[in-house]
Write a protein that binds this DNA or RNA. Structure first.
Lengths: 136, 136
DNA sequence: TTAGTTGCAAACATTTTGCCGAACG
DNA sequence: CGTTCGGCAAAATGTTTGCAACTAA
């Protein structure tokens, strides 16, 4: 297991992390970019991307869209749960059943009207197996 | 409510739908393209995209990534549920608690090793409200 | 006949990468 | 002072769109 590469706490990295922690929203990269630019006008979008990536890899922040970049399609329209391989991105159906949430199990979100939810399981597919492997 | 525009069942549309229904996987657009091309070598990727979009809009197939295309980031790394506005894409934290799934509530998927799951609520945010509004 | 559709190419949107000078530790 | 890092611009990905020709109904 390679020892993790040493990280420097640069001004841009600190500001990105700082702003992200202040925000109650969950901004996309370019929103972070706009916000950070107010404190650091010459920062580049690439730096924001690089740092968001590094910070999420070391587990200091969360990257919400695990999904990869492509959309996937399902010829089966009945609602059913899926598994996504965290290594190769492949998606399959879950076999067993999952008990749906009862309405009273759905919490509030201020101002939101909740229509439903999406449950997706994460794991590694048979091809990718357990090993370290190239993630994402 | 505008009456839905009449749709034609073209050869390409039929083949796309047909192939998608056969597949047990959940292919991305370019995989559908590769597959359909075997039966229709001159089909274009744009046609595949257009039809996947139309077919999912009329509810004949499912588009799995509701998320939009951008990744979002969260400065809070503790696992907690989110709400996503289906109209503007905004993401917020859920306030209440959601009971986590017990291990025995997690179904099998042949060959997969399940590491966890992701639960995301869908709704409309206060700004977007209930109305018809521009989705996605 | 005629509106919805297609293929093609170009435009878009988002994320990643190569390069080199800059700066953290 | 060496290595990681940042800025910039270009490339890579994935998806959408304009347009003239085509075709299902």
């Amino acid at each position: 297991m390679p020892s993790p590469k040493p990280l420097r706490m640069t001004r841009q990295r600190r500001i990105i992390l700082d702003e992200l922690r202040q925000l109650k929203t969950h901004p996309a990269a370019d929103e972070v970019f706009q916000i950070v630019k107010r404190r650091m006008p010459r920062i580049s979008l690439a730096t924001v991307y690089r740092n968001l990536d590094i910070l999420s890899q070391i587990g200091v922040i969360q990257k919400l869209e695990t999904a990869g970049l492509q959309r996937r399609f399902d010829g089966n329209i009945s609602p059913h749960p899926h598994v996504r391989c965290v290594k190769c991105g492949r998606v399959d159906d879950m076999t067993g059943d999952v008990r749906p949430l009862r309405p009273d199990e759905i919490p509030r979100a201020q101002g939101y009207t909740i229509h439903g939810y999406r449950l997706e399981f994460l794991g590694t597919c048979p091809q990718c197996g357990e090993g370290p492997g190239a993630a994402q």
